[in-house]
């Protein structure tokens, strides 16, 4: 099949549904987006909005028996959802890698660091164990771990959280993938380590010309390292655009809420920390109209009744809201959103 699009990854109308004992869970609905080479895309939203499920659907890590994935996931012009088990295995770890949220539990406690990196290398390449180990040590030093030879002989429980996250990055980069999915890679780490890890990702993005999907619920992180942002709410994309446009003129009340809830490091006195009221709705009991309506300050009759579609603006920004024009005007008139992009 010849396809004209040149995106590294293009997800089209992704629907991921789990069939659990409690019933059907539509965790991801009609999600479409793309990632280019050498680009870092932020995927944000509160916890439970379907960010991890979206990415794990790309990797097809879910239990097949209870999961239905529909749509198309084009990676380098082939639809990953049409691949056979074996073909998908060749993609995982070689062309697409993933780093998970909790570095404490993402490494196997009974194998050494070196062996776990060697496994990632040897799964896709026929090379000698010694040579693979040499490369593993090299990968460790690339992630700026000091005394990599010694670390390679250690077990996960002997390393700190930040070190383990570096090891996971080394594993993910073992075969120089073209796409890296980082699922909240810094959430569990303290602030200094966080920025070191982000710096590493930025650096590898450049040197390997890699596309990166960075999942996070920290918009500050997105402002620092991403070029585009996708905002998810209750299993759907509600807004998408460049970092600049999202931070200066968010058109969805949810995005706006997330921005207002950001802790302001620069300490603008007029801008108080404002948490979005309410919680993410249960997937078993979604509002009929706009899923954000119960928590939205702009909500009107139509919001409660009709589900808004994702609308593309001329600027390329996309938004799923009946009243985005109201926000567009507001954003122009008064700059009530704190100038978060200044930190970018």
């Amino acid at each position: 099949m010849v396809l004209e699009h040149e995106h590294l990854l293009e997800v089209r109308a992704l629907h991921t549904t789990f069939y659990t004992e409690k019933g059907r869970v539509k965790a991801v609905e009609d999600v479409s987006f793309y990632v280019d080479r050498g680009e870092m895309v932020g995927l944000v939203g509160e916890s439970g909005c379907g960010k991890s499920v979206t990415c794990e659907s790309i990797m097809q890590l879910h239990n097949r028996r209870i999961t239905e994935i529909k749509g198309e996931i084009f990676f380098e012009s082939q639809d990953l959802l049409k691949l056979k088990k074996q073909q998908m295995r060749n993609i995982r770890g070689r062309s697409i890698s993933m780093i998970f949220q909790d570095p404490m539990s993402s490494l196997n406690p009974v194998y050494t660091i070196g062996d776990q990196i060697v496994e990632a290398i040897k799964t896709h390449r026929k090379i000698e164990k010694n040579e693979a180990m040499r490369q593993a040590v090299e990968l460790l030093s690339m992630t700026e771990i000091s005394s990599p030879e010694e670390v390679a002989k250690k077990y996960p429980h002997q390393l700190s959280g930040g070190m383990r996250q570096r090891v996971l990055i080394a594993i993910a980069l073992a075969c120089q993938p073209r796409l890296l999915i980082a699922d909240e890679p810094t959430t569990a780490l303290d602030v200094t380590i966080q920025s070191q890890i982000l710096d590493l990702l930025v650096q590898f993005k450049k040197t390997l010309d890699m596309g990166i999907i960075l999942i996070t619920h920290d918009l500050g992180v997105v402002a620092e390292v991403c070029s585009r942002v996708i905002v998810m709410y209750a299993g759907e994309i509600v807004e998408e655009g460049t970092v600049e446009s999202i931070f200066t003129k968010p058109l969805h009340p949810y995005t706006r809420g997330l921005l207002l809830a950001m802790p302001q490091i620069q300490g603008d006195r007029n801008c108080k920390l404002k948490v979005i009221k309410g919680v993410v709705p249960s997937l078993f009991n979604l509002p009929r109209g706009c899923r954000f309506a119960p928590r939205c300050d702009y909500s009107t009759q139509i919001c409660a009744e009709k589900h808004p579609e994702l609308t593309a603006l001329d600027s390329g920004q996309m938004v799923r809201c009946w009243h985005y024009q109201k926000l567009l005007k507001e954003a122009r008139i008064n700059d009530s959103i704190c100038d978060a992009s200044a930190r970018g």
């Binding site: 794990e56 990797m59 890590l61 295995r89 060749n90 993609i91 995982r92 770890g93 070689r94 890698s97 993933m98 998970f100 949220q101 909790d102 539990s105 993402s106 490494l107 196997n108 406690p109 496994e119 990632a120 799964t123 896709h124 996971l168 594993i171 073992a174």
Partner: peptide
């Protein structure tokens, strides 16, 4: 455990 996901995402059978 997450390390099972890590193992699958390495491309292991």
């Amino acid at each position: 455990n997450n390390y099972i996901k890590t193992a699958y995402s390495k491309g292991l059978s």
